[in-house]
């Protein structure tokens, strides 16, 4: 085995998976609060454009990410208004958000076609990045890859260790009880939606800043949907979102490499692999886990405090 190639493959897998990690975590934080937001795709593309536009204007990476998250959060606030204030159906509102976001990004983004953002430099982690094979594969990435893993850690800590996280989970599991206990269901959900939108926005910006890196309309190409599926795959747990995203990314990248190495199967069959493997893995996990992988109890249900 060619170890140089192996480390390159792993490197590519991490890059291809990172947008899914961010967006998946963004969906997860909302769903743990009981909000089902199918608008992730729309949030991603708007973040993709905002991040790209900022980078093209010459701002540093940090500002680009901030703008991407801000754009995602702003679009998400429309969703929050409709779902929390006006009791609109969240499933349909999420889909409408996707339509709206894709249109908005296309409209505002047409002037960015043909433009180039500066390349994002890798952070070579001292010592670790010097290790053969593993060093290049894992420890010489752009800052966002590390940030995505760190974010998962923060969310895990938040959900399991912090008091606010506990409240958020309570709201997600049973909003009527949480309300009776005096927690602001609407407030918690609003924050979750805003954070989720911001994370989805960052996920989108990873596509335009690092992975491709350019902006064209419609370029998220269904990644928001995959992210939503991964949350289910992960049984609503942050580290499993990473695992799911990396699994999906691995199969996607390995099938491409397989073709370049001369595997002779119709490419459409190979392109099906990531989806089929994810289903298979879910079946294995679900059949063993029993009930521990259940969705948050109030997921997707409308909360009306007057009752």
């Amino acid at each position: 085995m060619d170890y140089g190639l192996l480390s390159s493959i792993i490197h590519s897998i991490l890059v291809a998976s990172t947008p899914l990690v961010f967006a998946g975590l963004g969906a997860l934080i909302q769903e743990r609060a009981g909000v089902l937001n199918l608008g992730i795709e729309g949030l991603m593309i708007v973040g993709a454009l905002a991040g790209f536009a900022t980078a093209v204007a010459g701002f540093p990476l940090l500002v680009s990410i901030l703008m991407a998250s801000l754009a995602g959060a702003m679009l998400a606030s429309i969703f929050a208004l409709l779902v929390l204030r006006l009791y609109a159906n969240p499933v349909a509102t999420g889909l409408a958000l996707t339509l709206f976001g894709l249109g908005l990004a296309a409209l505002a983004g047409s002037q960015y076609v043909g433009q180039a953002a500066p390349q994002v430099a890798a952070w070579e982690i001292p010592f670790l990045s010097q290790i053969p094979v593993v060093g290049r594969a894992l420890f010489s990435h752009d800052p966002l890859v590390y940030l995505s893993i760190f974010t998962a850690f923060v969310i895990w800590w938040f959900l399991t260790k912090s008091r606010t996280g506990l409240i958020l989970r309570a709201v997600g599991e049973n909003h009527t009880s949480a309300h009776a206990l005096g927690f602001s269901v609407r407030g918690v959900r609003f924050l979750a939606i805003i954070c989720g939108g911001a994370l989805a926005g960052i996920g989108g910006s990873y596509l335009t800043l690092v992975q491709t890196p350019l902006f064209v309309e419609g370029m998220t190409a269904g990644r928001g949907w995959i992210a939503l599926a991964l949350v289910v795959f992960a049984s609503w747990r942050p580290f499993r979102v990473i695992a799911g995203a990396y699994l999906f990314g691995s199969v996607s990248i390995i099938q491409l490499h397989g073709q370049a190495l001369g595997v002779s199967v119709a490419s459409q069959w190979l392109s099906m692999l990531p989806y089929v493997v994810t289903i298979g893995a879910l079946v294995v996990i679900a059949s063993r886990a029993g009930t521990s992988q259940a969705a948050p109890g109030s997921l997707g249900k409308i909360f009306k405090e007057s009752r």
């Binding site: 992975q211 419609g218 190409a221 990644r223 996607s252 491409l256 490419s267 459409q268 392109s271």
Partner: peptide
């Protein structure tokens, strides 16, 4: 063969 005409992410990969 990427089995798509347009998916910048997949084309980049």
């Amino acid at each position: 063969w990427v089995s798509t005409w347009f998916d910048p992410g997949k084309e980049a990969d």
